[in-house]
Amino acid sequence: MSAPSSGRLWRVAVLSPPLLWTFVFMFIPYSILFVYSFWEQVYPTFQPAFQFGNYLQIITDPQYFNVLSRTLKIALFVSLGAMLVAFPYAYFLVFKVKSSALRQVLYMAVVAPLWVSYLLRAYTWKTILGTTGILNSFLMSIGVLSEPSSVFLYNQTAMIVTLIYVFIPFMVMPIYAVLEKIPKSLTEASNDLGVGRLRTFFLVTLPLSIPGIVAGFTMTFCLTFGDFIAPFLVGGPDGLMVANVIASQFGAALNWPLGAALALVMMLIVLTIVTISDRFEQLGKGKFA
């Protein structure tokens, strides 16, 4: 591949737009964000500095620490909940559905909502769970409740249900992909050798599907961790998540340095999880190779 001058020109023409774009709109902004996180707020604005006050505040001020741990907790519950729904669904599609046409339809049924506006899918839960909502009036019409209850909306449970609903396709897709790849002969061999179906599941199917579970878990966790729409729509006063706090630092609170530091902490957590999950997948690959 000795490159004639026109070939070199072509390379430059192909390479420079994306390189320039990523440098100007990704590398520089992320760097400025990093720099800002060391600045300090001098009310009503902020000024350049090099100090760790913002990070210190995140660790020591219970307000920020609580939001971080709450966000972690909710992301964990959403990922676990989505997995508990997604795994049986994917398992049913791969191992129980005989017709491939039906399997495709059922697969599309769970993936298709991704094309429908995320905001609207989250919003519908507000209409369902609200005091004047459908769940309340339904329960009243069948006589379970005598007056509308406000327990369904504006709390962490409502948020978890909404986020599971919104992110479930991201859990089904990778789990389905790994289950589909498990050779049927493997489970049949296990059955033929007299191993019960339950034990076959725990000794063969489940271990082989771990890479898919990890991939789905990572995706759902990261998406939930950065979400700031569900807390706004269905979360209550105790439902603020990190993204909401970051948004308010860049809005009303006008403390960009603290917001930048929070964003970097968020980035660090997300990237750590992605790295761990990558290692995990690599480990799995090594085993089968």
Binding site: Y30, I32, L33, G226, A263, V270
Partner: peptide, 13 residues
């Protein structure tokens, strides 16, 4: 992998 909010605020800055 990164939440959209990070792209949003870094470009805002």
């Amino acid at each position: 992998a990164l939440p959209g909010i990070i792209t949003g605020i870094s470009m805002l800055i």
